[in-house]
Design a protein around this nucleic acid. Structure first.
Lengths: 147, 147
DNA sequence: CTCCTAAATGGAAATCATTTTCATTTATAT
DNA sequence: ATATAAATGAAAATGATTTCCATTTAGGAG
């Protein structure tokens, strides 16, 4: 948690109770959640809580690299998850389609592909994003052989 | 164009003038566009045109693999682009950040990474998506050495 | 510890892309 | 030419997200 307080301070964001609660919420279950999910969680712990606060904070935390934001199913709904990787470290995310856990991994061989793709497409590549979906270890185990 | 008419028929979608116009619109400029962009284009060519028709058709065409849908800037706005690859062929997309051209490429070495990531994360990977942004050949040329 | 100020917050209303509903029109198989 | 399932448009609904603004609060300075 200290790590996050520090990150907030470095980015001139106050460590408000709600911000801390949001971070803890994600840290605790490691699952991705929608703004509405977060709102519901906070509503259970604070007398007052408004949607603007939820959205603003999710955005703030995403901007400073504590959370990651992504869109699923092309359903016009965004999800957020805790970003385990340290800020600035190149990494990608993988989500569990069953329990919605979100994990980071740094393994990425894109650089070795980059040149070839640039040759094939004629593009000069500036950014790449690899997004994975699968089944996490725990879910694999709990599912046993079935599926 | 015949190719697209055939694809429509195979998917039990009628070759309505507006559908054809949408496909032609994307084929012509090869750039990605929002539903609103498409709406504006159609409005210039048809007396009557409604948003529902635009959205429904963009979705239909995406479903049968003629278009590809994606989200940019996490701004809650979706874009569509023509998908050059044949349906079923594994491929990814790259967009030009300058002119918004969208291209396909089949080069993908993900399989060679898959095992390693599965070992590192414990996940069983079901889907992967590689999304690239860069500058296309024409824009590179038109920009000259600058930038 | 108290003050001060910029930052954060909540409620209400606004925004705005997208979707639903439903009556009318149209593409196309027969 | 016709029958019919599919497509369409207008209007209204939806629903996630954002704006506005008055009030509250975190946290550094003194």
């Amino acid at each position: 948690m200290e790590k996050y307080r520090k990150a907030l301070k470095e980015n001139k964001l106050k460590a408000t109770p709600k911000r801390i609660a949001i971070i803890k919420f994600f840290l605790k279950n490691k699952k991705y959640a929608s703004a509405f999910d977060v709102y519901c969680h906070l509503r259970a712990n604070f007398k007052k809580i408004g949607f603007p606060t939820v959205y603003r904070n999710l955005d703030n935390l995403t901007k400073i690299g504590i959370l990651t934001k992504f869109e699923l199913d092309e359903k016009n709904l965004f999800y957020y998850g805790i970003c385990a990787a340290d800020k600035g470290v190149h990494h990608h995310h993988i989500i569990c389609e069953r329990c919605h856990k979100i994990s980071d991994f740094e393994l990425c061989n894109f650089e070795s592909l980059k040149g070839e793709i640039e040759k094939e497409t004629g593009f000069l590549i500036n950014h790449h994003n690899l997004f994975l979906k699968g089944i996490c270890k725990l879910c694999q185990e709990s599912m046993g052989g079935e599926r």
